[in-house]
Every structure is written in structure tokens, then in C-alpha cells.
């Protein structure tokens, strides 16, 4: 590992993906690319936590099925979500009897799980590993904010947690999108304390990881068709471009944010989507489809996460953030 970046020599590849989008998410462009579209955000379950868990096991199973494999063919599940003690991921893994690594990187979990899975496969420790991440608006809302029925106003900087999940099956060989490198981020805290302004808190972390990647590998942003960030939202994206511009890196040509494209109209959601499911859903539906179709050849996938809890926010702590980057090539 040099400059925080692991270069995968054997180029593990994503041989199959699966995704599920909630009702609100499927109204936008993502609805056309997601494999499963929910007609009911409960997904036939009795609680939102169970629904989130079911979404995760649904996409893990979907990815295995799309690769024409059986559960026993998978050596490892790397998965995470937003709930306390990552219960959705571990409860979903309960049904699989496959070794399980639970990872937590808040909204950056998709990039983190993909990096871990790719490293395991690239090192020859696993033949196939599934990286899966999801989130649910209602379960996140009740854990991080208020009861759903409480009549509060949403500040204009706030984002909307995505109901959705995505899974990538990473294998040593086969046809698919190649994972060429992973840049693991540092925890960055610029002192933002406003829990409603995640974009501003996470932008410095994203900038740090992106700058480290481009400096360390001596590559140029122009080499990429897209530089995709996880869920910075409209304001966070603006801040990211400013922060990297300051350091001599111009992202304005090919930067796009999952949170900004996941919803049709960004009026109600103010800054766009957020949550672990946001980048997982967009990567495993829209971006994967575009890469397989050949219209995107090389992308830098940077998922960002805010590592706060209700306790830390209550104690007045600022919000530490992290960003992990994965390069994908076709």
C-alpha cells in the first residue's frame, strides 16, 4: 500500500450486481435501472428494520443468482448498514451460512465493503466475495432523528436517506467491471457540528481522499469518464469542487454525486439523497449498467460517510468523516 492506495494486480471483477430501490427512489432515473423496485417500503415485513434486513438479503441473493451461482459458491459476505450494531447486515447474513465480515463506514460503506472484498479476492484468499450495503429512510430516521410522525420542519441543508440496497459479487475471474485500485481514506474533521449539514461535513473527507489518490498515482481527472461521490448532495458537491480546486485539481468536468441524481426532483429533498443505500443503489444499478454497456469506461467511485452518532451529536462533538475511493474499469 502506497499513498493509502492498494493497486489490485489481478484485477478482481464485479461479475454480477443486484439492487433494490424504494418507492420514492424508483420514481427517478434509478427506477429504470434497479433490479427490484419496491411497491411498499415495508417489503412485506412488520418493521422497518426487518424490511432493511430483507432488502440486504434480497440483493445478496440476487447478485449470487445473477452470476448463476449458489450460496455455497460464495466464500465471504462483506456487508454493512447504518443501524446500531449493523443489525441489518448481520441479520441478513444469518440466513446464508457464509463467512461474514461486518463493516461500518456510515454512508461510505459501499466503497469500504467493495475494497475489502476486492482485497480478499485479489490476494487469493477468496474466490468470490459479495459486497453489499443498504439503508432505509424510516429506520434511519427513527434512529438518528425523530419519530416519523413528529411534525417538524426540515432545514434546507438536510438530505433524504435513501431506501435501497445494492450488492456486487466480486470474483477472481469472469466477465465484468474490473476493480483496479482502492484508496482507503483517513478520518477527517473540519469541525462542522450541524448534523443537518452532512454535505459540508463530508466534503473535506472526500477532497482529502481524492487528492491523495491523484497525487499518489500521478493520474489526472481527465482520465476518468466519471468521478462519482456518494452522497455529498448539492452543497457538498460544490464545496468539494472548491476544496480540490484550491489544491490544483479540477473536478468540475466529470464529477457527479449519487445523492444529486438519485431523486427526480430535488425540491422536497433539498440537497438530495444520502445514506449508505444511496451510493450502493446508484453503483449497482445505473453505473454498473452504463459500464457494462460501454458508455462509461473508467470511473472513480468515492463514497463518503459521516461517522457520528446521536450520542456524539448530543454531546456537541463535531462530525468526523471518511471517504474511500475505488477505481472501476471496463
Amino acid at each position: 500500500m502506497q499513498h493509502q492506495t492498494i493497486v489490485f494486480r489481478n484485477r478482481p471483477r464485479i461479475v454480477a450486481v443486484s439492487s433494490v430501490a424504494g418507492t420514492k427512489e424508483s420514481e427517478g432515473v434509478i427506477g429504470r435501472y434497479a433490479e427490484t423496485v419496491l411497491s411498499d417500503d415495508m417489503f412485506g415485513e412488520s418493521t422497518y428494520e426487518k424490511a432493511e434486513c430483507k432488502m440486504l438479503s434480497h440483493v445478496i441473493d440476487g447478485a449470487i443468482k445473477n452470476a448463476n451461482l449458489r450460496r455455497a459458491d460464495v466464500d465471504m459476505i462483506v456487508s454493512g448498514d447504518l443501524l446500531n450494531q449493523i443489525i441489518s447486515a448481520s441479520f441478513a447474513a444469518r440466513d446464508f451460512s457464509v463467512p461474514f465480515l461486518g463493516v461500518y463506514g456510515a454512508c461510505s460503506t459501499m466503497a469500504e465493503s467493495l475494497a475489502v472484498a476486492a482485497a480478499l479476492v485479489d490476494g487469493g484468499y477468496c474466490r468470490r466475495a459479495v459486497a453489499a450495503t443498504g439503508s432505509h429512510f424510516a429506520s434511519a430516521e427513527r434512529q438518528y432523528r425523530y419519530p416519523l410522525e413528529l411534525g417538524t420542519t426540515r432545514p434546507p441543508q438536510s438530505q433524504w436517506t435513501v431506501t435501497g440496497a445494492g450488492a456486487s459479487l466480486v470474483a477472481a475471474e469472469g466477465d465484468g467491471v474490473q476493480i483496479t485500485s482502492a484508496t482507503l481514506g483517513k478520518v477527517v474533521d473540519f469541525g462542522v457540528t450541524d448534523v443537518n449539514n452532512m454535505g459540508a461535513a463530508m466534503a473535506p473527507a472526500a477532497a482529502d481522499t481524492i487528492l491523495t489518490y491523484f497525487r499518489g498515482t500521478r493520474k489526472e481527472p481527465e482520465e476518468f469518464d466519471l468521478i462519482v461521490t456518494g452522497d455529498l448532495g448539492a452543497l457538498g458537491s460544490r464545496l468539494l469542487k472548491d476544496l480540490t480546486w484550491e489544491k490544483g485539481l479540477d473536478l468540475s468536468q466529470n464529477h457527479v454525486d449519487c445523492g444529486e441524481i438519485v431523486y427526480n426532483v430535488v425540491e422536497d429533498e433539498f440537497q438530495g439523497g444520502s445514506g449508505a443505500g444511496c451510493s450502493a443503489l446508484v453503483l449497482n444499478s445505473y453505473l454498473h449498467a452504463k459500464m457494462m454497456a460501454g458508455s462509461l469506461k473508467k470511473i472513480l467511485f468515492v463514497a463518503t460517510g459521516a461517522l457520528l452518532s446521536t450520542t456524539s451529536a448530543g454531546q456537541g462533538e463535531s462530525i468526523p468523516c471518511i471517504a474511500h475511493a475505488v477505481t472501476l474499469e471496463r
Binding site: F190, G191, V192, N197, L239
Partner: peptide, 13 residues
């Protein structure tokens, strides 16, 4: 980090 926070606040809608 005060500079950054001040900068962020200029974007407050």
C-alpha cells in the same frame, strides 16, 4: 477550521 466553517456558512440558503 474556523475558515472552513465560515466559508460553509456563506452557502447557507
Amino acid at each position: 477550521n474556523r475558515n472552513y466553517i465560515e466559508y460553509v456558512n456563506t452557502f447557507a440558503p
